[in-house]
């Protein structure tokens, strides 16, 4: 057995990438509109439970949509709080995370009965081998075998999102709202879109979102309750000045690294010259370095996180 199974590491990286990337896109939309969304974590969690329930009841596609709707619901709460009532973005986000944990357990008990300790097994999308890529040498091809269609779908989502952000009226308004809400107060608008990721490593479901222009929506991308990841994503999406594609590259790097570390820990204890805990720190450290501008100066939208108010003190 090779020291590190490259194919498996990449496969895990891709799977994490999908989750993180979708959440990152959610972060992208809200940050671009000037709303800091710490609540991504909670939106992922709710999306997971809702998605799992939807999948059990109506199949994977419906599960995807229902999960997205779950995230959307919390996104609307966040939007209502921050935009309509001008609650501080961070406070609202933190509260949403708190509520989501409770709500998720509550819903899980309601949906799946008392046995919430073990995850219900859920039908998933048919897996498929990616043509060409699955033929790659050096065991790399294995990364592209038996892949959930959600993974490439997440990749492809980049194109419409870039289009919406840069080429549509809505995208322009979204971005201008983030830079200078004063100019365009009525349109501190935003996008609503959500997506989801389902329970456990077994079945992976990505997500898609529905826009909700004009309404003061927000955006949410939920996932299975995996503490820290959503928040991490919010962090990673901070290079929001960069285009989606770059965000994409950055977070996949981060994730493949930590995905690789999880795999390394499972398969090849030989390579743990560094204690596993330190390997786990790497994505955080990388993000911090990136944010600190050693990789490239990133500028958030001018008004990110600012609650809009008239006046102010002298």
């Amino acid at each position: 057995m090779p020291l590190l199974d490259l194919g498996a590491a990449v496969a895990i990286g891709l799977r994490y990438f999908t989750i993180i990337y979708l959440t990152g896109l959610g972060g992208l939309f809200s940050e671009r509109s000037g709303i800091v969304n710490i609540g991504l974590e909670g939106m992922m969690i709710i999306g997971t439970v809702m998605g799992a329930w939807g999948t059990l009841e109506y199949g994977p596609v419906a599960g995807l949509v229902i999960g997205a709707a779950g995230g959307l619901g919390l996104g609307l709460v966040h939007a209502l709080a921050t935009v309509t009532f001008r609650v501080d973005h961070i406070v609202s986000g933190v509260v949403i995370n708190v509520v989501a944990v409770g709500l998720a357990r509550f819903l899980a008990q309601t949906f799946f009965g008392q046995a919430t300790q073990s995850d219900p097994s859920i039908p998933h999308f048919d897996k498929f081998d990616v043509p060409l890529l699955s033929q790659l040498p050096l065991g790399l091809g294995r990364a592209f075998e038996a892949m959930s269609p959600v993974v490439p779908a997440a990749f492809l989502l980049t194109i419409p999102i870039l289009f919406v952000l840069n080429k549509t009226r809505f995208g322009l308004r979204l971005r201008s709202a983030g830079e200078n809400p004063g100019r365009d107060p009525s349109r501190r608008c935003a996008c609503s879109s959500a997506s989801l990721r389902r329970r456990h490593d077994l079945g992976s479901v990505g997500g898609a979102g529905g826009g909700l222009p004009r309404d003061r929506g927000e955006r949410a991308l939920p996932r299975r309750p995996d503490a820290g990841t959503g928040i991490h994503r919010a962090g990673g999406s901070d290079p929001r000045q960069l285009e989606a594609g770059v965000v994409d590259a950055r977070c996949s790097v981060v994730r493949i690294r930590s995905g690789g570390s999880a795999e390394a820990q499972r398969r090849a204890p030989v390579i743990s010259v560094l204690p596993e805990q330190f390997i786990r720190m790497i994505p955080y450290v990388v993000t911090m370095i990136a944010i600190a501008g050693f990789v490239g100066r990133v500028q958030p939208p001018a008004a990110a996180g600012r609650v809009r108010r008239r006046g102010g003190s002298l």
Binding site: G235, T287, M288, I291, G293
Partner: peptide
């Protein structure tokens, strides 16, 4: 020193 937003960096510090 670098203008790195404290919300992001403190969240990362939590993970570390």
């Amino acid at each position: 020193r670098t203008g790195a937003h404290e919300v992001v960096t403190t969240i990362m510090m939590n993970g570390i």
